[in-house]
Design a protein around this nucleic acid. Structure first.
Lengths: 129, 129
DNA sequence: ATGTTACGCGCACACCCGTACGGGTATCCG
DNA sequence: CGGATACCCGTACGGGTGTGCGCGTAACAT
């Protein structure tokens, strides 16, 4: 059998029950893709810090944000572009200054769980690498 | 001014107060890196589905996992390697079969919030692209 | 009007990541 | 034993990703 051994390792289950159980309660590839792309937005130190900062002070312009994070204005600008494209942040333009804040429809669970609680997780990592 | 314009867009804050407020309650780059690399593990449909599957049926071997997810055994194997390296899953070897499950010290907040609750978020996405 | 500031944008670069493929090892079956 | 199975590993490759740089634009200051 020299097809694509891609999905053809073994054809018959070892634990047919569990396989079936897993199949029923499984998340679809589409949902997984959505979830992944959403979490992927936090999978970058700069973006994560941006969101966390905006969660605490609610409004900041690009320069001040870069200043607060001690990051390059370029990377902050790029991060904001990604987040803006994804619809997680919005920009209020006042003169030549653009004030960014979390979008009104910012996913509350994401805000609550990933931004606020998971941070504490990373702050108390007793072991790991 | 032809230095690195990296961190030197503007030198004086616009909202000195907010900048200071953000600075104090900020997450360090290290914490952000930890959080990001952790969430980055979920930023892949295959890995996310693997973890979710293992969260529901608690134990599965590689082949059955690939079978349940209808994914290639290669990608599942690769995903498991990443997760195993990160310490999120462990493998119990029984004969030639390796049964995987979530690690004992699997971050509970991650399990609770990202795996279980955030999935519901993706299932009721009112808009987004 | 002229220069400066604040920000966006596009380009080029290096880099990481997931996939596919070919092997390799240990186990089970006949 | 010998062959098939279940899985792991290393490699090569295409594609996506973050960064730095220059330039453009709009707004403010002088």
């Amino acid at each position: 059998m020299s097809e694509h051994r891609s999905a053809g390792g073994h054809s018959h289950p070892v634990d047919a029950e569990r396989v079936e159980a897993a199949r029923q309660r499984l998340i679809s590839p589409e949902d997984a893709a959505r979830l992944s792309s959403l979490l992927g937005l936090l999978a970058d130190p700069v973006r994560a810090r941006i969101l966390y900062a905006l969660d605490t002070v609610e409004e900041l312009c690009v320069g001040d944000l870069a200043l607060a994070l001690e990051a390059s204005e370029d990377s902050v600008g790029y991060g904001l572009r990604i987040l803006r494209t994804a619809g997680l942040v919005t920009g209020r333009k006042a003169g030549r200054i653009v004030y960014y804040r979390l979008a009104d429809d910012f996913p509350q669970p994401l805000r609550e769980h990933c931004l606020r609680r998971l941070v504490e997780l990373t702050r108390a990592p007793l072991d790991e690498d």
